[in-house]
């Protein structure tokens, strides 16, 4: 059982994520129309297109940190809404944590998700329960850490992380939004799934689908 993650897998991860965003664009738009300004799907779609083109161009990249930093810059410049800076800092901090080289340990991957989550929380001033992407990412990060420390395989660890992200995403339905445009609605935001938590869940689900072995 190998517990390493390679650069090639990471490229597959984010290409898969771009596909997921495109498939779910209408859903993201519909969710954002209910409590936001209906642009999350379109914004993420633009980010996904640019990200896919960038990955396909980056044929002579041999370091995970360079790869992730390039992804960060691409998302920052192409998404346009709050998700741009937020996914951007996630990958920027993850890139620093990953360091150079074309392979990292599962433990390092878990750490990457941890620091990435922290940077999103710092940047967006969002806490657990505020009905944001944090509500999907935080449970995933915790599950990934526990499974990694328990010695599970990459596949197993990311599977439980993905389940935790999905549960966190669904839990946003009953939450009242405290951040972003949705917070203007106050209690009327209750009953709607958060679009940011949904795209964040897709990121973890894509990792589970591609980074295992």
């Amino acid at each position: 059982m190998t517990r390493d993650v390679t650069l090639e897998q990471m490229q597959h991860w984010l290409l898969h994520y771009a596909d997921q965003i495109e498939q779910e664009q209408a859903t993201l738009t519909r969710l954002d129309a209910a409590i936001g300004d209906a642009d999350h799907g379109v914004n993420m779609q633009h980010g996904a297109e640019k990200m896919r083109a960038k990955i396909n161009d980056l044929t002579d990249c041999h370091d995970i940190d360079v790869f992730l930093r390039t992804i960060a810059m691409t998302l920052i410049s192409s998404i346009g809404g709050a998700a741009g800076p937020l996914y951007g800092v996630f990958f920027l901090r993850a890139s620093k944590e990953a360091g150079p080289g074309d392979v990292i340990s599962l433990d390092r991957l878990a750490q990457m998700f941890q620091v990435g989550l922290e940077s999103i929380q710092q940047r967006g001033h969002a806490r657990l329960g505020d009905k944001t992407m944090v509500d999907a990412l935080a449970p995933a990060v915790e599950a990934l850490r526990l499974a990694t420390d328990a010695g599970q395989s990459t596949t197993e660890a990311l599977a439980v992380a993905s389940e935790a992200a999905e549960a966190g995403m669904l839990a946003t339905i009953d939450m009242e939004a405290k951040k972003g445009r949705a917070s203007y609605l106050g209690p009327r935001s209750i009953g709607h799934q958060d679009p940011g938590a949904t795209s964040a869940y897709l990121l973890v689900a894509s990792a589970a689908a591609t980074l295992g072995n």
Binding site: I76, I79, G80
Partner: peptide
Amino acid sequence: RLGTDPMR
């Protein structure tokens, strides 16, 4: 299109 670009 509508949006803000931190890099610009």
